[in-house]
Amino acid sequence: MTKIKTQTISPQNENILIRLKRVESQFGYIPEESITEVAQSLDLPVSEIYGVATFYSFLATKPLGRNVIWVCQNLPCHLKHAEITIDNLERTLGIKPGETTSDNKFSLELTNCIGACDYAPAMLINRDLHGNLTPNKISQILKLYK
């Protein structure tokens, strides 16, 4: 008999991500009220659901712009100077990570490894992968998005 207590490891926890994803696809992000609703429906504390929602880069807890840029900030990309990419995007768009441009065109987000280390430094815009980024390339890429 193992003595691992199960209060925080229950089968309900498996449903959290599925439910949060569903909420996100409905509203485009996860509103505060939905976090409370999900918590109530699973009989879990709000803080637990909020913790899960904020942990994942691909779950948004605030409204995003029409196009979302996720720049990878993990080690391989970091070693290939991801900060230049981030800096460049910040200056071109005039926003910081976590923010959205005033015309609602772009949101800038940071993410963990997106599995494109061989193209480092890499970023995702919506579902498109862009790698081997250079400042020149970035301004070309941004033009592709309306």
């Binding site: 709000v46 803080s47 637990e48 659901i49 909020y50 913790g51 942990f55 880069s57 963990n112």
Partner: peptide, 21 residues
């Protein structure tokens, strides 16, 4: 049995939060 405190965000930003921060 309150569940007020939680842990949220990720890596360096991880912190103890109250409900939804």
């Amino acid at each position: 049995e309150n569940g007020i405190l939680g842990i949220a965000y990720r890596s360096f930003d991880t912190k103890i939060v109250i409900d939804n921060d």
